Simulated scan of single mutants.
Amino acid sequence: MTHGDHGQHVLDGLRGEARELRNRIPDVYAGYSATHKAALSAGELDVATKELIALAIGVSKQCDGCIASHARGAARAGATAQQVAEALGVAILMNGGPSTVYGPRAMDAFLEFSGENPA
């Protein structure tokens, strides 16, 4: 992947792949969508904080689709690049070496979605 390939490019690639499975098990996807919405809605934690948590977990799980989705969510929720960097620092602490590979991908995706990436 080149610079800028960790954000929208990943999401676009997954969209078509997911369509076939989603069409075959729509109730599963509807249930997941409801859980996603409930988990990321503002409560005692604001949406940006929840997106940062999800982004760090996506890095720990080495899930490029999760990283792209939650990098976009964090950008839309108003997270700052420094907040993302610090959340990724926690992912590196908790997950070690693999997060030093996936963390930069997450930072790149966030910068792309936030408009801060000089791609």
Rank of each mutant, 00 (worst) to 15 (best):
E116S: 12
N95F: 10
E17L: 14
G89T: 02
A71H: 06
P118I: 04
Q62K: 12
G65I: 05
R72N: 02
Q82W: 09
E51Y: 13
V28P: 10
I92H: 00
N23A: 15
V47N: 01
G103E: 07
Y29L: 08
N95L: 09
L14M: 14
Y32W: 14
A79E: 00
L52W: 06
L93F: 13
H70E: 04
N23R: 14
R24G: 01
R72T: 02
G78P: 03
V47D: 06
Q8D: 12
L14G: 15
I57M: 08
H6T: 14
G58A: 14
D64W: 02
N23Y: 09
D27N: 14
S60G: 15
G78N: 02
A77F: 09
I25R: 15
D12S: 12
K37F: 10
D12T: 09
V10R: 00
A85M: 08
V90T: 10
L11Q: 08
E116A: 12
G103H: 03
G13V: 02
A87M: 07
P26R: 06
N95M: 11
K61M: 13
V28S: 15
S114M: 03
A30R: 15
A77N: 04
Q8P: 08
R72Y: 07
A74R: 05
L21T: 11
G89L: 07
A39R: 13
Q8S: 10
G16F: 06
A109Y: 04
S60T: 12
S60P: 09
A85R: 15
S41D: 14
D12R: 09
L111Y: 01
A56Q: 00
A56R: 03
L93D: 13
D5V: 04
E44N: 10
L93C: 11
A109V: 02
L52I: 06
L111G: 01
E51A: 15
M107K: 03
E20K: 12
A74V: 07
I53W: 00
Q82D: 14
G103F: 01
R19C: 06
E116Y: 09
G89V: 04
V10L: 00
L111N: 02
N117D: 10
S69I: 12
D5L: 03
G4I: 01
